[in-house]
Amino acid sequence: MSDERYTDGFLIPVKKSKLDDYTRAAEKCSAIWKEYGALDYAETVIDHDGIPNMRAFADAAGAGEDEVVVFSYVVYPSKEVRDAANEKIMADPRMKEICEVSAPLFDCRRMAYGGFRTLVRA
Protein backbone atom coordinates (compact mmCIF):
# COMPACT_ATOMS: atom_id res chain seq x y z
CA MET A 1 0.00 0.00 0.00
CA SER A 2 1.57 3.29 -1.13
CA ASP A 3 0.91 6.64 0.55
CA GLU A 4 2.08 10.23 0.41
CA ARG A 5 4.38 10.09 3.44
CA TYR A 6 7.94 11.25 2.91
CA THR A 7 11.00 10.18 4.90
CA ASP A 8 14.39 11.78 5.34
CA GLY A 9 17.09 9.27 6.27
CA PHE A 10 20.57 9.78 7.70
CA LEU A 11 23.56 7.49 8.27
CA ILE A 12 26.10 9.07 10.62
CA PRO A 13 29.38 7.80 12.09
CA VAL A 14 29.71 9.15 15.65
CA LYS A 15 32.66 8.77 18.03
CA LYS A 16 31.74 6.31 20.77
CA SER A 17 32.98 8.80 23.35
CA LYS A 18 30.55 11.44 21.98
CA LEU A 19 27.40 9.31 21.78
CA ASP A 20 25.84 10.67 25.00
CA ASP A 21 26.41 14.26 23.83
CA TYR A 22 25.00 13.37 20.41
CA THR A 23 21.91 11.89 22.08
CA ARG A 24 21.28 15.08 24.05
CA ALA A 25 21.54 17.19 20.88
CA ALA A 26 19.24 14.78 19.00
CA GLU A 27 16.63 15.03 21.76
CA LYS A 28 16.56 18.82 21.26
CA CYS A 29 16.31 18.37 17.49
CA SER A 30 13.43 15.93 17.80
CA ALA A 31 11.26 18.50 19.56
CA ILE A 32 11.92 21.08 16.83
CA TRP A 33 11.23 18.64 13.98
CA LYS A 34 7.97 17.52 15.60
CA GLU A 35 6.95 21.13 16.20
CA TYR A 36 7.27 21.82 12.46
CA GLY A 37 5.25 18.85 11.26
CA ALA A 38 7.24 15.62 11.52
CA LEU A 39 5.04 12.63 12.28
CA ASP A 40 7.93 10.54 13.58
CA TYR A 41 11.54 11.26 14.47
CA ALA A 42 14.00 8.52 15.41
CA GLU A 43 17.71 8.35 16.15
CA THR A 44 18.96 4.78 16.45
CA VAL A 45 22.41 3.40 17.20
CA ILE A 46 23.68 0.21 15.64
CA ASP A 47 23.42 -2.86 17.82
CA HIS A 48 23.95 -5.65 15.29
CA ASP A 49 26.04 -5.31 12.16
CA GLY A 50 27.72 -7.61 9.73
CA ILE A 51 25.78 -10.44 8.15
CA PRO A 52 27.83 -12.68 5.84
CA ASN A 53 27.61 -11.69 2.16
CA MET A 54 26.08 -8.29 2.99
CA ARG A 55 27.72 -4.91 3.33
CA ALA A 56 27.88 -3.80 6.97
CA PHE A 57 26.42 -0.44 7.95
CA ALA A 58 29.75 0.43 9.57
CA ASP A 59 31.41 -0.01 6.18
CA ALA A 60 28.70 1.95 4.39
CA ALA A 61 29.07 4.78 6.92
CA GLY A 62 32.87 4.66 6.82
CA ALA A 63 32.92 4.24 10.60
CA GLY A 64 36.25 3.73 12.32
CA GLU A 65 37.00 1.43 15.26
CA ASP A 66 36.29 4.29 17.69
CA GLU A 67 32.91 5.10 16.11
CA VAL A 68 29.35 3.80 16.13
CA VAL A 69 26.78 4.17 13.39
CA VAL A 70 23.65 6.20 13.96
CA PHE A 71 20.73 5.63 11.60
CA SER A 72 18.15 8.38 11.83
CA TYR A 73 14.90 9.07 10.08
CA VAL A 74 12.16 11.68 10.07
CA VAL A 75 8.71 10.93 8.63
CA TYR A 76 6.43 13.65 7.27
CA PRO A 77 2.87 13.55 5.93
CA SER A 78 4.19 14.58 2.49
CA LYS A 79 7.22 15.95 0.66
CA GLU A 80 5.58 19.38 0.65
CA VAL A 81 5.29 19.35 4.45
CA ARG A 82 8.94 18.20 4.63
CA ASP A 83 10.09 21.04 2.38
CA ALA A 84 8.20 23.67 4.39
CA ALA A 85 9.37 22.19 7.68
CA ASN A 86 13.03 22.16 6.65
CA GLU A 87 12.88 25.86 5.74
CA LYS A 88 11.43 26.69 9.16
CA ILE A 89 13.84 24.36 10.98
CA MET A 90 16.92 25.85 9.35
CA ALA A 91 15.68 29.38 10.18
CA ASP A 92 14.86 28.51 13.80
CA PRO A 93 17.33 30.21 16.18
CA ARG A 94 17.42 27.11 18.40
CA MET A 95 19.13 25.25 15.55
CA LYS A 96 22.13 27.61 15.61
CA GLU A 97 22.81 26.65 19.22
CA ILE A 98 22.32 22.94 18.51
CA CYS A 99 24.65 23.12 15.49
CA GLU A 100 27.33 24.86 17.54
CA VAL A 101 27.14 22.14 20.18
CA SER A 102 26.91 19.36 17.59
CA ALA A 103 29.84 20.50 15.43
CA PRO A 104 32.42 18.48 17.37
CA LEU A 105 30.10 15.45 17.69
CA PHE A 106 30.24 14.30 14.06
CA ASP A 107 31.53 15.41 10.68
CA CYS A 108 28.63 16.52 8.45
CA ARG A 109 30.74 15.75 5.37
CA ARG A 110 30.69 12.07 6.37
CA MET A 111 26.94 11.95 6.98
CA ALA A 112 24.88 10.22 4.29
CA TYR A 113 21.46 11.73 3.63
CA GLY A 114 18.51 11.02 1.36
CA GLY A 115 14.85 11.92 0.97
CA PHE A 116 12.59 8.95 0.30
CA ARG A 117 9.07 8.64 -1.08
CA THR A 118 7.06 5.78 0.33
CA LEU A 119 6.65 2.63 -1.78
CA VAL A 120 5.03 0.34 0.78
CA ARG A 121 3.71 1.00 4.26
CA ALA A 122 2.01 -1.74 6.20
Results as ranks from 00 to 15, higher is better:
V81R: 15
V69N: 09
A112S: 15
Y113H: 15
K88Q: 08
E100F: 04
G64T: 12
S102H: 01
K96N: 11
F71C: 02
A61W: 01
C99M: 10
D49S: 13
P93E: 11
E100Y: 07
P104W: 07
F116G: 02
N86I: 13
D49Y: 10
P52I: 15
M95L: 06
N86Q: 08
E87P: 02
P104C: 12
L119R: 10
D66N: 10
E100I: 04
A60R: 05
R110C: 03
G114E: 09
T118V: 06
M54P: 00
P104K: 07
A60D: 06
D92L: 11
C108W: 11
P93K: 03
V68T: 06
Y113E: 14
D47H: 11
M95P: 06
L105Y: 01
M95K: 02
V70A: 14
F71D: 04
A85G: 14
V68A: 02
I51N: 06
G62Y: 09
L105I: 14
M54V: 07
M90W: 03
M111W: 08
E67K: 04
E100P: 01
V74A: 07
A91W: 03
P93N: 13
A63D: 02
G115N: 08
D92R: 12
I51P: 05
E65W: 00
C108F: 04
E65V: 11
A63M: 09
F57V: 06
M95H: 07
A56E: 13
Y113P: 03
V120Q: 10
P52G: 04
Y76P: 00
D92C: 09
Y73C: 07
A58N: 03
H48D: 09
V70H: 02
P77M: 07
S72L: 08
A58S: 15
N53Q: 09
A85D: 01
D47Q: 14
C108L: 10
P104T: 14
G115P: 01
N86M: 15
F57H: 03
M95Y: 02
D47T: 13
S102E: 06
K88I: 01
F57N: 06
K88C: 13
L105S: 04
Y113I: 06
S72C: 12
F106N: 11
R94W: 06
R110P: 00
A112C: 04
S72M: 05
M54L: 01
